[in-house]
Amino acid sequence: MGILFEHGNFTLFRDGFLRTLELSAVSAVLALLLGILLAAFRVSPVPALRVFGTVWVNIFRNTPLTLLFIAVNFGLPQLDVHLSPFVFAAIALSAYTGSFVCEVLRSGINTVSLGQAEAARSLGMTFGQTLTLVVLPQAARSVLSPLSSVFIALPRNSAIAGAFSVPELYNVQQTLSDRGYAIFAIFFWVALAYLVISAAVGLLFRVIENRVNRLAVAR
């Protein structure tokens, strides 16, 4: 278990840990934005946008993340798009996660009671106003718990980036394994790091949920 404190392994491990956090955070923000946009498409009154949103979500939700990584990492350079592995990984992760966020938001929008949107419309609000001012804030409450499982899954999925030369935790596991350390000791530390991240994201969502619920009660 002491392998972490030998031969500069600690720096390697710490950098990997931070890189996992960084990649997950960047992808989370991008996925959230993409998911909101796609969800707006999927509930919009314009049929062409609805079809586009549906097709997009069905493609990205049903493609294995590993295949997306291959498409981005090996496909884009063929088109003369040359970015760092980190950016490629963020693109693949957020495109994948964004479609899951979209589905969560869409089902959340459907849980808001009909009367709310009807009232907003009868006050003369447009589609955009109804969605952003009335429906989405109320959907937030029912959306939080499925959204938390999407964002807890994100750091786990980010491990695949390690196989595509982003020096994050999975990559660290590979490197240490190549250096000949016992796999159990490596697994212990990497597993611990992921447990910490999962727990932190879970805690964050519980805090947000409490805050939202308290606001709802106060009103």
Binding site: R156, Y170, A191, Y194
Partner: peptide, 18 residues
């Protein structure tokens, strides 16, 4: 709880190596 929080890739790699 443990296996739900573990990245699959980490586990598969560790199993493959051990």
């Amino acid at each position: 709880q443990f296996f739900r929080a573990m990245p699959l890739l980490i586990m598969i790699f560790a199993l493959y190596q051990s």
